[in-house]
């Protein structure tokens, strides 16, 4: 009897699908999310292979003869008031904008998720200490905070990354913490403890996967804000140091010319827009793909 049952089971045995595969399976159903992913990959390829597309000299080369040339076959995106090739600046700018935007989000995401999860999971004194620290960080406006850090550490791309991450971390910590608190009384957490699961495994295996939705939404929103904050920092001279091209910097540098040469602000604006849209699409797709309940 059992033999028959077993042989039947073997015949219809279904291959266990790995988690990553099933996430990808659900992700690719969302056409917009796939489009966002392709867009971001293209942007990354451009950023990585910038030296192959245009040499760096073109970015900083100034020429009074070639000021304010409108987009043409020779200068695809035109030139700015110093006669620098806008195409080269946009291509090279992708390096700074993307690495700063994505980098700071990844740092604050990891840090925020860990600290927030620890704070919410353990509660008590650990929680109070962490949250008061975060309150201190939150009390200072993001831009002011970034200004302080850059002013203290000095101007530079890496310091800017630190500044941007530090000023976005508190938001992540709060979101993760509140989600963890609402989850930690759940019976499946208790079930995990009943078979001796350690705290760390409970946090990353049972708690974090269940709070991923709000985190990703927050991350994609913050991503767009970060690029804009960097540009406003650049405007007051604390962002990416000139003449290094960064989309936000280019945008604010050319603000004065917006009325007569609109392409100077439109093109970097479109570049920022594309990267932010790509990020948002990916974020939406990921959130849905990671939640098995939304599978249709």
């Amino acid at each position: 009897m059992t033999d028959i049952a077993n042989s039947k089971v073997n015949k219809v045995e279904i291959k266990k699908r790995s988690q990553l595969k099933s996430v990808w399976f659900r992700y690719k159903k969302n056409k917009m999310a796939v489009a966002g992913l392709i867009l971001l990959i293209i942007l990354f390829i451009i950023a990585v292979s910038a030296p192959l597309i245009v040499p760096y000299e073109k970015v900083v080369e100034q020429s009074m003869k070639h000021r304010f040339i409108k987009p043409s076959s020779e200068y695809w995106f035109g030139t700015d008031e110093y006669g620098r090739d806008m195409f080269a600046r946009i291509i090279w700018g992708a390096r700074y904008s993307l690495s700063l935007g994505v980098g700071s989000i990844i740092i604050s995401l990891i840090f925020g998720a860990l600290v927030g999860a620890v704070s919410g999971y353990y509660g008590g004194r650990i929680d109070s200490t962490i949250m008061r620290l975060m309150d201190v960080l939150l009390a200072i406006p993001q831009t002011l905070m970034a200004i302080c850090i850059v002013a203290a550490l000095g101007q530079g791309v890496f310091n800017l990354l630190v500044a941007m991450s530090a000023s976005t971390v508190p938001k992540f910590v709060r979101i993760v913490r509140s989600s963890v608190i609402s989850l930690k009384g759940e019976e499946y957490i208790e079930a995990a403890r009943a078979c001796g699961t350690g705290d760390f495994r409970i946090i990353y295996k049972h708690v974090l996967p269940n709070v991923i939705g709000p985190i990703i939404v927050q991350a994609t929103i913050t991503m767009a804000l970060t690029v804009l904050t960097i540009s406003s920092l650049s405007f007051i001279g604390l962002g990416v140091p000139t003449p290094q091209p960064e989309w936000g910097t280019i945008l604010s540098d050319n603000k004065a010319q917006m009325r007569y040469y609109p392409y100077l602000t439109t093109i970097p604006g479109i570049a920022i827009l594309i990267s932010v849209i790509a990020m948002n699409l990916i974020g939406d797709g990921l959130r849905d793909a990671l939640d098995p309940k939304l599978k249709n």
Binding site: E187, P209, L290
Partner: peptide, 23 residues
């Protein structure tokens, strides 16, 4: 803990919604 286990009341709350049955 290997020697003592628990079965919970609410089968809707006691299973992690992000894990498959086999997991």
């Amino acid at each position: 803990r290997k020697n003592m286990q628990i079965i919970f009341q609410d089968p809707y709350a006691s299973l992690n919604p992000r894990m498959t049955v086999s997991e």
